[in-house]
Design a protein around this nucleic acid. Structure first.
Lengths: 184, 184
DNA sequence: AGATTAGTGGAGGGGTGCCTCCGGTTCGCA
DNA sequence: TGCGAACCGGAGGCACCCCTCCACTAATCT
């Protein structure tokens, strides 16, 4: 299992660490709300921090985004471990559900699937290493149609992730249809 | 069948009409490329027209967008008529496929499903009037699982529309899985 | 407590986009 | 051909964002 790259080092001093974390949280929210191109000044404002502080911790918008993104990906990896005890199909669908539910950086994940950058490549690899075994296991157990690839499924789910739903119930329903579509 | 509202009147003079059409075309491209918040100045540039001309024809970004959007929706309506001769399931899936393939204002359609505005409401109605009969026919023919609603399906497909795919083949494949998921 | 130094935050210059306004241009009719 | 109305387009004021720079603040160490 590859290590997720740590884009930025957490600062040493207590106050600096507080700011760092506040920035990360604010960025997570802002990215989730407004997509990749949220205003950095707005993020600093949300974090109750000067714009200069933001730039010292994350010299580039990319750096900031990566820091948020890396966290998300890491969660995905942890979930993969947790669900691996379940039966093949349940494990896969549980993992995919987390993929939909917790991917706060939703829109970003979609873009990321295609974006070229060392860090994105790395995260894509991590994501695949986390999910693909679950997928293969389900497929070998005859729970997933044999002509589907993990990439297909991931992109399908990513697409749904970006969709707009009336309520959680509808989202779950639609998600269920999609999953149903890859059964043999 | 409700009439799609005509947001803006086409100008009278020949040169003005040329500009109007150029703006509409440029806007379609720009919206498809950059989403709803494409730069209006860029659109004017693409159309080879001053920014003032853009604003005279479309006082609001919303006006311009609506003009483009209305065209899309109208195409959707026409397709519904065309496919209505096919057997129930083929008709529905053909229509939905057009929905994915021709929705140039892709990202916008997703937003539009939720956005509140007279014009969007109107277009949503038009869209439903075009597609829902096809859906019901397919459902009554036992070709679609009875617990699915047209809204569910539309949103599922919209989601896929916003997704990123490696190539057309993958998009078609994924689209196929999703459709397969709503079969009984 | 005082020195050291990591860390702060916002002013400011440059850029881009939004939208208004109006002097100049061109169309179309007589 | 000539005239008036319709139409053009960009300059300019405003707002927001990006990013740099540096005088100031306060956490940590001794």
């Amino acid at each position: 299992m590859t290590d997720v790259p740590v884009a930025v080092r957490r600062p040493q001093r207590a106050d600096a660490r507080r700011n760092f974390d506040a920035l990360l949280a604010a960025a997570r929210d802002a990215f989730a709300e407004n997509g990749t191109d949220a205003s950095l000044e707005d993020i600093a404002r949300r974090a109750g921090v000067g714009i200069g502080t933001l730039y010292r911790n994350f010299p580039t918008r990319q750096d900031l985004f990566e820091a948020v993104y890396v966290e998300e990906i890491d969660q995905l990896r942890q979930v993969a471990t947790k669900v691996s005890a379940l039966p093949p199909w349940q494990a896969l669908s549980a993992w995919l559900e987390q993929f939909v539910r917790y991917a706060v950086t939703k829109r970003a994940v979609i873009e990321a699937l295609n974006r070229e950058s060392d860090m994105f490549r790395q995260c894509r690899i991590t994501m695949y290493e986390a999910g693909e075994p679950l997928f293969q296991r389900a497929q070998e157990a005859g729970e997933v149609r044999p002509d589907a690839s993990f990439d297909d499924v991931l992109r399908m789910i990513s697409g749904l992730t970006g969709g707009a739903f009336v309520d959680d119930a509808q989202r779950d329903r639609v998600f269920g249809y999609a999953l149903n579509g890859i059964r043999p």
